[in-house]
């Protein structure tokens, strides 16, 4: 009991170091970017799992392997806990993005008449807020297509064939279009975001930064190509 008092005191001090409204790490511009980078990379790690599992549909076995994987994910307690973390991370990422974007608008009250941004930076690095917003819109559609029906099935203890649900959604051309727009937004968000996150975390190194940049580009392209192939192959009836 007695040893708990200094412990809580220490936590209070640490909490203050991080969260204090005036002097806390997270109230500073660098701290906010740090959180942005951390949550961004956390979401990237989720993408790895998501794209791997979904790629089971390419076995083209009528969804047997895919459904087995999806079923495991839907019921495994560890995954359930991680899912809460994922939503928390996503919300934090979106909240920070909003905060940063609003502050950055305020930092230039009078806009320039002529801006030649292409001369010094890529369009997508300047459009992370818009690309992220497109992603958010996409996520609303995406979650209502798959996450909500799965949750309802788990809640009611009924059988749920996620693969069949996927085929149903991707039989409609407009869903295919929405998913492709979502995937392209993700591609460009990641093309900048992947390497940007490392820079925000202070990880810049003569040897490793070129490697991080190349990995980021290939990661974005491969993940997005795989995601894009899912609605397309299902719509075209290649995946049965």
């Amino acid at each position: 009991m007695f040893c708990l008092i200094p412990l809580t005191h220490n936590f209070k001090y640490l909490f203050y170091t991080i969260m204090s409204k005036k002097t806390g790490f997270l109230s500073s511009s660098i701290g906010k970017k740090f959180l942005m980078g951390l949550t961004g990379l956390f979401l990237v790690s989720f993408l790895v799992i998501h794209v791997t599992l979904n790629s089971f549909i390419f076995f083209n076995d009528g969804g047997v392997s895919y459904n087995a994987g999806a079923d495991f994910m839907a019921h495994n307690p560890v995954i359930r806990i991680l899912e809460i973390g994922l939503f928390a991370g996503l919300l934090l990422h979106i909240f920070q993005a909003l905060l940063l974007t609003m502050e950055n608008r305020k930092a230039r009250p009078t806009p320039y008449e002529v801006v030649n941004g292409g001369a010094n930076s890529s369009w997508y690095s300047r459009s992370m807020g818009i690309l992220g917003s497109l992603l958010l819109l996409f996520l609303v559609v995406h979650l209502s297509n798959f996450w909500v029906p799965t949750k309802i099935a788990v809640f009611n203890h009924t059988e749920h064939n996620t693969f069949a649900g996927m085929k149903e959604v991707f039989a409609q051309w407009y869903f295919v279009v929405i998913y492709l727009v979502g995937v392209i937004s993700l591609l460009y968000h990641l093309l900048h975001g992947f390497q940007s996150a490392f820079q925000s975390l202070g990880l810049n190194h003569k040897k490793y930064t070129p490697l991080i940049k190349k990995t980021g580009i290939w990661f974005s392209i491969i993940v997005c190509a795989l995601f894009a192939a899912m609605p397309i192959t299902m719509f075209l009836g290649i995946i049965k």
Partner: peptide, 14 residues
Amino acid sequence: GFGNCTNTGACEAE
């Protein structure tokens, strides 16, 4: 009242 860096790299280029 300066804004937050988003690593666009425009500063380095200019």
